[in-house]
Amino acid sequence: MQDKMLDEFNQQTRRFFEPMRKLNSLMLGNMEKMTEYQLEAMKRYSQMGTERMRSASEIRDAQDLQAFGAQQAEMMSELSRQMMEDAQALGEMSQQFRAELEQLFGEVSQELSDTAKQAEASAKPAASGKTDAPAKSDAPAKATSRKS
Rank of each mutant, 00 (worst) to 15 (best):
D132L: 09
R60M: 11
F97M: 07
E40T: 04
A135Q: 03
E58D: 12
I59Y: 01
Q103S: 15
S122M: 10
K33Y: 02
D132C: 06
M34E: 10
R54S: 14
Q118H: 09
F16R: 00
S25K: 03
M75N: 02
E36H: 08
E92W: 01
S94L: 07
A73Y: 01
S77N: 10
R146Q: 12
L6F: 10
E102L: 10
A121M: 08
P140E: 09
Q103K: 14
L79F: 07
M1I: 05
L101T: 05
S57T: 10
S80L: 07
S113I: 05
E78R: 01
D86M: 02
F97Y: 12
E111C: 06
K147W: 05
K117T: 13
Q2T: 14
L39I: 06
S109W: 03
Q95M: 10
M48G: 06
S77G: 08
M93K: 01
K117Q: 15
Q118A: 15
A41E: 05
R44W: 02
E74R: 00
F9W: 11
A143I: 14
E78M: 01
R14L: 12
K130A: 11
Q88G: 09
Y45W: 03
L26C: 04
S128A: 09
S122P: 00
P125L: 05
A133C: 07
F105E: 15
P140Q: 05
M84N: 10
M31G: 00
M27F: 08
